[in-house]
Amino acid sequence: MENKEIKTLDLRGEICPYPMLKTNEELDTNKGFNILEIITDHSPALSTIPPQALKRGYEVEILEVKNSEWKIILTK
C-alpha cells in the first residue's frame, strides 16, 4: 500500500468515448499503480470518468491545469 506508484495517462486529443474506455481499460488491467493521473482536454470525460472510477473503488480529484485541460487524479 505504501508504494505510491503513479501512472500518467495522456488522453489529450481523444474524443468520446475513448477517454473513458481507455481509463477503464487501464483500471481493469493494470494493478501496478496506486494513483492514475489522466490528462484530458475533452470536457465530457469529467462527468463520465469519475463514476466509472468510483465504481472500481478509486477516489477522484479533478484539477483544472489550464483552460480546457484537466487532470483527473484517481487514487486507490
Binding site: P17, M20, P44, S47, P51
Partner: peptide, 19 residues
C-alpha cells in the same frame, strides 16, 4: 450541459450509464 444524443444511447451499452 454537454447534451449528447450519441452518448445517451451509447453509454447505456458501454458503461451502463443513463445520465
Amino acid at each position: 450541459s454537454r447534451f449528447c444524443f450519441a452518448s445517451s444511447f451509447r453509454d447505456l451499452f458501454l458503461f451502463g450509464s443513463g445520465q
